[in-house]
Amino acid sequence: MDTFLEQLPIVIHSLNTGFLQTMKLFFVTLLGAVPLGLLISFGTLSEFAPVRVFLNLLIWVVRGTPLMIQLLIIYYFPGLVLKNPVWGGGEAGRFAASAVAFVINYACYFSEIFRGGIISIPLGQDEAGMVLGMTKTQIFFRIKLLQMIKRILPPMSNEILTLVKDTSLARIIALQEVIWAGQAFMKGSQGISGAIWPLFFTAVYYLACNGLLTLLFNRAERKLEYFR
């Protein structure tokens, strides 16, 4: 397999498989971290001090330690310390552990963005809702949520683009995402060995994905331009 054209279909197939894993982790994280982050942000705004203190401690620990260490702890801790390797050695277990680590980590970052969004909305919106007899839930979902989304869109798009790239950290616990797939050809895989270009080629996947996301975010921002 020495010519580039012979290598190309094999490499692309392998990178596609890896990128599927990258995307899976990305979407699962997003689906889990957005609602969890919203709950955490409510908690940090709660009037009940123990909840507030606990969540602020959690946010401090999660934001204050590297995601890579969190991945290692979540994947290896059950087996090493509890003597119960709940995740198992297979791919599904590694994915599940990665997803848990990413959801917790990103929920903490999201929660701070959400909190900022919530407190930036003038109190008058709450009061206007209250005097019209609305419940707190109705006020949040019918009045504040959309205004909050409009305000947090720019920082969220930042965080989400970072998430796409951060998924590559999961290779520390051998989740076979796209960079792992690209790197495999450097050492030798499927009859192609010592090929450097697949690793660099993975950048194209990230770029394409983030390009698409940027377009989506721009579109969302334009859609919300109808009000101020």
């Binding site: 620990v61 969190q70 702890i73 310390v81 119960n84 390797p85 709940v86």
Partner: peptide
């Protein structure tokens, strides 16, 4: 390094691995 890891873990278990205290014995699980 084990001790450090355990400390870090303790601060994370609250919402971490889901199975807090399970069987201590690898055989059982």
């Amino acid at each position: 390094s084990m001790a450090l890891m355990a400390t870090l873990c303790l601060s994370m278990t609250a919402c971490g691995s889901g199975s807090g205290s399970t069987s201590k014995d690898s055989g059982k699980s």
